[in-house]
Nucleic acid binder design. Sequence first.
DNA 1: GGGAATACTTCGCCACGCGAAGTATCGTGT
DNA 2: ACACGATACTTCGCGTGGCGAAGTATTCCC
Lengths: 110, 110
Amino acid sequence: MFSADLKRGSIELMILSVLRERARHGYEIGKLLEEISGGQLEFRVSTLYSVLYRMEKRGWIKGRWVERKGERRRCYYTLTGKGREVETRQRQEWKAFSAMVNHVIGVSHA
Amino acid sequence: MFSADLKRGSIELMILSVLRERARHGYEIGKLLEEISGGQLEFRVSTLYSVLYRMEKRGWIKGRWVERKGERRRCYYTLTGKGREVETRQRQEWKAFSAMVNHVIGVSHA
DNA sequence: GGGAATACTTCGCCACGCGAAGTATCGTGT
DNA sequence: ACACGATACTTCGCGTGGCGAAGTATTCCC
């Protein structure tokens, strides 16, 4: 739905945000974001997993493999301390940024 | 100030937006965006001009060179009809997108 | 006349979302 | 018993686009 360029700036924040609540696995995160957004937001699996790998590499989240009989193997991700900090910082940055954009396009629209 | 990824989704809209008011040249647009945003928003010249070239190539804006004695040569850009349409569409998309992000990070934050 | 500000150009790097293709397991219907 | 869809993750290569760096040229002001 939304352009890739638009999503680029906020996918990390949205993932960090839904991980604040509790640990989730990749596929779940994708479905959840789609659901919360009312179907407006869709990410390719390749996008989603590459973001998760990147964030783990940076130490923002920590993956834990869970294999139980009668269930597919899943990797559950948890926020690290650093991840929580990044989430807070990105949330503030997003708020400031979106306010700024609204101001710019509002001022010149008037 | 703001991350490149964040800016990626809205620079076009912001430029189209300030061009709605009147024709402006590249350097002017850069200074204007910096000013309106209270110094929060900065773009490299290479970024700014490449965006302008791209938008002209797509037929969203039209450049007109002005050379007057006692003045540096400047290329003034004007919105085309298509540019006006794109501006409207991107504005709506931005509104919907930012509302969606706020919803997602709000829901999971609660 | 020298340095800051103005105004634009070109080039190559690299991050990242995406498309495509693949692997494997589980549930459901017939 | 078998097919098919949903679940769950992996890997690879492409294209887009902001950015850094370096360069050119003109104007203004001390």
